[in-house]
Amino acid sequence: MIRLFRVSKRYPEGVTALHEVSLHIEKGEFAFLTGPSGAGKTTLLRLLFREERPTSGQIIIDGRNLIKLPRKEVPFFRRNIGLVFQDFKLIPHWTVYENVAFALEALGTPPREIRKRVLRVLGMVGLHGKMARKAAVLSGGEQQRVAIARALVKEPKILLADEPTGNLDNEMACRIMEIFEEINTRGTTIVMATHNYELVSRYGNRVIGLDRGRVVEATERVAEGT
């Protein structure tokens, strides 16, 4: 599903964010991207949703080579990718429903279909009863669940999450993880960047460790029950 071949990213100021990273993430996998701040986690995710292009190397996602992807194809590529960020990226003066529905409006989905799908994902993240509330009045955990709902409502093949639990307390972080696990069991490939090692060890998923732009650790998913 996701393949990287010797991907490097250097910025004009001379900073090397990633150095010859090669990776292969299978369809349906749930991988943690770990490492300290500045390890290159966010840069790697930004390359995966084509917010940036690598300086060298190749990135193949769902059969598409991102290096050769023309600019005007990028929106269509992103329709298969759900994105969740640490800072939620919600429109605070919009309601929960509007924030989620917006992702489908932008894709030209018919209103009836939008309503059906928004209600379904809001149910999934447990916010059915709060859909008329403004995003600004929700707690951090609730806001992140709205952001997840917005990412999921497009029914993406891949979910990329950048420190989704970074601003949340432990209890809320666990609730978010439960939702991710559930999405993953339905077949969505998930790549989640985090520096919360406790969370990583608790879930036993595949771990891709980054340090100063290089892959330093790559474990397979720990088998159930071991």
């Binding site: 949703f49 005007k72 929106p75 269509f76 590529f77 992103r78 329709r79 990718i81 994105l83 990226k89 429109i91 917006f102 992702a103 932008a106 894709l107 030209g108 917005r150 497009k154």
Partner: peptide
């Protein structure tokens, strides 16, 4: 920014 992230076209 959100429109760009969810895959809205430039025309939209």
């Amino acid at each position: 920014e959100i429109m760009e992230l969810v895959g809205a076209t430039e025309r939209f």
